[in-house]
C-alpha cells in the first residue's frame, strides 16, 4: 500500500501498525507524536492502529522555537 509519511510517499505492507511503522523508520517511540489523516493517534493505540492505503501520516517532535 502507498502512504505518505511526513510528506514522502512510501510503499508499506498491508496492515502495518503505527508501532511497526516507527520501528521500520528507526524512530524512538517516545518524544514523538503521530497524526493520521489530520487526527491525532493516541500513543496507547500505536500497537493496534492499522495504516490503510492512502493514509497521510505525520510524525512530529518538539524542536527549538520562540
Amino acid at each position: 500500500m502507498t502512504v505518505t509519511v511526513n510528506g514522502e510517499s512510501r510503499e508499506l505492507r498491508e496492515g502495518l501498525t503505527i508501532a511497526q511503522l516507527l520501528v521500520l523508520l528507526g524512530t524512538a517511540q517516545t518524544g514523538i507524536a503521530v497524526a493520521c489523516n489530520d487526527a491525532v493517534v493516541r500513543r496507547s493505540t500505536f500497537g493496534e492502529y492499522r495504516i490503510a492505503h492512502g493514509d497521510r501520516i505525520e510524525v512530529i517532535q518538539a524542536v527549538a522555537g520562540g
Partner: peptide, 19 residues
C-alpha cells in the same frame, strides 16, 4: 519556555533532543 512542533527527519538517527 516555548517549543515548536516539527516533523521528525526520517533519515536522521536520534541523538540528544531539545527536551
Amino acid at each position: 519556555v516555548t517549543v515548536a512542533i516539527r516533523r521528525i527527519a526520517l533519515d536522521d538517527p536520534s541523538g540528544k533532543t531539545l527536551l
